[in-house]
């Protein structure tokens, strides 16, 4: 009998230790499948963030670099400049990319660095225990906004994909979600396209992925998926915000 489904070679044979219903394990797998499909496992280097996915190097079966909170795009730039034939991606959360590392992501995009960035947006700081992130929705209750985020003191949800799509240096900016089969497949396509663009030297790409955090949202895994569909998507619409190559073609 032909084996048609197996663990990607780009994932180590270890169980994920993320919380039940968390989107990280799913997104890790999608990235691993894309790397397998493109046959680039031997030349890929990933950058792990500070945040829940700090343990990404325990799961990905290729070289990983761990850098300080928020600095992956800058570290990726350095790596890529030295090894331009390698494929480098950073994997970052809300705290890493949309808060402490906002400067790095903007300037990596502006320089049009030929790297792939996977940005997991779960509207909270997961690892430190569910504090308000710049991506937290208005009215959303977190441990630092117990009565809900109030724009008067805490500002508005930061739309990273929209923000980066205004930058001339960026090539491919897309927002996807892992709330449904359809969107999981869409996310995988976006990840693969991002890698393909990098392989072809087409420049900076970022895939923003809306991802559930049931523990900090205090919802069941199923209700968390519904929350993405009913609450998050209206603030963070899915879609391609920029595709420079397509525009040229």
């Amino acid at each position: 009998m032909e084996k048609i489904f197996q663990r990607p070679a780009s994932l180590k044979p270890v169980p994920f230790r993320y919380c039940p219903g968390c989107g990280h394990s799913l997104i890790h797998r999608l990235i691993a499948e894309c790397i397998d499909n493109l046959g680039i496992r031997e030349k890929v280097v990933g950058i792990a963030p500070v945040g829940c996915a700090v343990f990404a190097y325990d799961y990905f079966n290729f070289d990983m670099l761990e850098v300080a909170h928020g600095r992956p795009p800058a570290a990726a730039t350095g790596y890529k400049r030295v090894m331009p034939d390698r494929i480098i991606f950073s994997y970052q959360g809300d705290g890493d990319l949309a808060a402490i590392g906002t400067a790095e992501i903007i300037h990596a995009a502006n320089r049009g660095e030929n790297i792939s960035v996977f940005f997991v947006n779960n509207a909270t700081y997961g690892m430190t225990g569910g504090q308000m992130a710049p991506t937290t929705l208005l009215g959303q209750k977190t441990t630092t906004t117990p009565f809900g985020r109030n724009n008067e003191t805490a500002g508005y949800p930061l739309r990273v994909a929209e923000l980066l799509s205004t930058i001339e240096g960026a090539s491919y900016i897309v927002r996807t979600s892992v709330d449904s089969y359809k969107n999981i497949i869409g996310t995988k396509k976006a990840i693969e396209k991002s890698f393909r663009y990098q392989i072809e030297g087409k420049g900076f790409s970022l895939v923003e992925i809306l991802s559930p955090c049931p523990v900090n949202w205090k919802l069941s895994p199923i209700d968390s998926l519904t929350w993405i569909q009913t609450e998050m998507v209206s603030v963070y619409p899915l879609g391609t915000f920029k595709d420079k190559i397509k525009e040229i073609e």
């Binding site: 928020g70 808060a99 710049p134 441990t143 630092t144 906004t145 117990p146 003191t153």
Partner: peptide
């Protein structure tokens, strides 16, 4: 500490202006 303190702010136990900034 900061999390407990933001609860004091939200519950009106202190009059502190609390700023949830993006980095240290």
């Amino acid at each position: 500490i900061m999390q407990r303190f933001t609860s004091f702010v939200s519950n009106g136990k202190v009059k502190t202006e609390m700023i949830l900034v993006e980095s240290e």
